[in-house]
Design a protein around this nucleic acid. Structure first.
Length: 494
RNA sequence: GUCUCCAUCGUCUAGUGGUUAGGACACCGGGUUUUCAUCCCGGCAACGGGGGUUCAAUUCCCCCUGGAGAUGCCA
């Protein structure tokens, strides 16, 4: 039988790490099994669903190169894959359940439900939830309430006795007493939209989904869903509940841990292959050797058996490491393309990006390539090449444990050397600067650092001579002159 | 409160009824180097506790503890 899995997010916010991890695992599993990956949109929450979220979903999947076999974009053989366009189906099925005596209309107001829950919580009641008030309304009572135009929901009649078990491919059998399952959960809301439970079960069944891979937070709902399948007389699919993705504090990953929206990662300058690779390693591994996987490899090698049961912490630093590794694997030309948007948004390069600008960008790639953790780092790194900033604080020019006067002498001496030997090989210039440092009885760094800071306004920069060449000798020398003047003034002022 | 699930270095993990419990990130040292970074070398660091089963348990079972999730007209 062909494997059919789905990713079924609700568009109530930006796609985040946890969601995308679920999407990835489903996608890899489908590919590895030569099955189908289906994308379905569960926009049954009219309050929170938004078009923006749907666009973000498409953009994110596209960025990660996850292409659904069936789904909203391409359409599919089972009608629309957007739940808000399938409401009649859910309503019909809910009514079918009423006819079968498996569900009933409930006219309780939200206010009553809120008060009830509060009461139960305060009383530390054993079970918190609906008390079944409307479960046994007579037909006359129901008709009367309907004639009054009272809004209602449809609730499932959860059996009071017995227990329900489902098998999880990862966890094994999971059993709950029916009396512990959510008491008579709402299936159809008063606005005519289905709840997750109803829509999900109907769609998974009607779209012939074979494996449900979703986050472990759904485990407690498993028995409820089985009850629904049984009420309809359907065979449930196979379940595989994926370990959750947590933040450093062990709690469900959320904004307070840092960025969680894939869009943020994309904008900061994480490469899709790095994010995809790392996210796939949270909760899954291949062996104790291989840690770099292309999307194609994952599509081939992914297997359920290697999924970990325990939740995993999302490690931003490890993601950085992966990203740096992937950046360094890029060719200079690829990197130019990737970096260009960041240079443009910093206004270092014009929107039209003429040939000269591109040539300059290309020339500085080797300076930054092995220093980038994320693409957006580039602007700070090359700032000195694109702005006219100069050092304005003499103390910044001072290397550790070196006096003002020593630094002044060092930089002045260095300036002369640079002026004289600038057309020579790096080694020649370097040799002369080293001689200078020893003649002044300074550390090598005592000569190089002031130059570096003068030219780049930072004690951290790409290699000095490369930086100077990228800037141009004339400009560099002018900046050094400026720094010398600065030091000179300070020396005179004591 | 009740229910469900989980448990190897700080983190992601490999692994087995008998191993010096392996790797990666992070961290700390050292080397290369004019800074940073890259790169190379080295170090730190784990089977939560208690009972069983067994000749032998990190591994199998039970309890405890700890953590997480669920308890919505959100998903």
């Amino acid at each position: 039988m062909e494997v059919r899995v789905r990713y079924a997010p609700s568009p109530t916010g930006l796609q985040h790490i946890g969601g995308i991890r679920t999407a990835l695992f489903n996608y890899f599993f489908a590919r590895a099994q030569k099955g189908k990956f289906i994308l379905r949109i569960e926009d049954t929450d009219q309050e929170r669903s938004s078009e923006e979220s749907i666009q973000d979903l498409y953009e994110t999947l596209n960025w990660l190169n996850i292409v659904p076999d069936e789904g909203p974009v391409q359409g599919g053989p089972y009608g629309p894959y957007i739940q808000s366009e399938r409401t009649k189906l859910y309503k019909d099925y809910a009514n079918e359940l009423i006819e079968k005596g498996k569900a009933y209309k409930c006219f309780c107001t939200s206010d009553r439900l809120d008060a009830l829950r509060e009461e139960q919580t305060a009383a530390k009641s054993k079970q918190i939830g609906y008390d079944g008030k409307c479960r046994n309304l007579t037909q006359q009572e129901i008709t009367a309430l309907e004639n009054e135009g009272k809004p209602f929901v449809i609730r499932l009649k959860v059996p009071k006795e017995g227990k329900t078990t489902f098998h999880d491919l990862l966890m094994g059998d999971i059993t709950r007493k029916n009396s512990d399952v959510n008491p008579d959960p709402v299936l159809l809301k008063s606005d005519g939209f289905p709840t997750y439970h109803l829509a999900n079960v109907i769609d998974d069944h009607s779209m012939n989904i074979t494996h449900i891979m979703r986050a472990q937070e759904w485990i407690p709902s498993g028995p409820l869903h089985i009850l629904l399948y049984e009420a309809f007389g359907w065979t449930p699919p196979l379940y595989c509940h994926l370990p959750m993705v947590m933040g450093k504090d062990g709690k469900k990953l959320s904004k307070r841990h840092g960025s969680t929206a894939v869009k943020d990662f994309r904008e900061i300058g994480y490469l899709p292959e790095a994010l995809l690779n790392y996210v796939s390693m949270v909760g899954w591994s291949y062996d104790d050797k291989k840690e770099f996987f292309t999307e194609d490899e994952l599509c081939e090698l992914f297997s359920l058996e290697k999924i970990n049961k325990a939740p995993g912490v999302f490690d931003y630093k490890k993601l950085d490491w992966y990203n740096g590794m992937y950046i360094r694997e890029k060719s200079d030309i690829e990197l130019v393309k990737l970096l260009l948007p960041y240079m443009q948004s910093a206004n270092y390069i014009s929107q039209k990006a003429d040939e000269e600008e591109m040539k300059k960008l290309f020339s500085i790639i080797p300076l930054v390539k092995e220093r980038l953790k994320v693409l957006s780092d580039v602007t700070e790194m090359v700032k000195f090449l694109y702005t006219e900033d100069e050092v304005e604080d003499a103390t910044l020019l001072l290397p550790k444990k070196q006096t003002l006067l020593e630094t002044y002498q060092a930089l002045k001496g260095a300036y002369e050397i640079l002026l004289q030997y600038k057309d020579q090989q790096d080694e020649v210039i370097e040799e002369h600067l080293m001689q200078l440092s020893s003649s002044l009885n300074l550390k090598v760094n005592g000569v190089f650092m002031p130059i570096r800071v003068s030219v780049t306004t930072s004690s951290v920069s790409p290699p000095l001579f490369d930086s100077i060449r990228a800037l141009g000798w004339d400009k560099a020398l002018l900046r050094i002159e400026h720094a010398i003047t600065l030091l000179e003034t300070e020396v005179k002022n004591g």
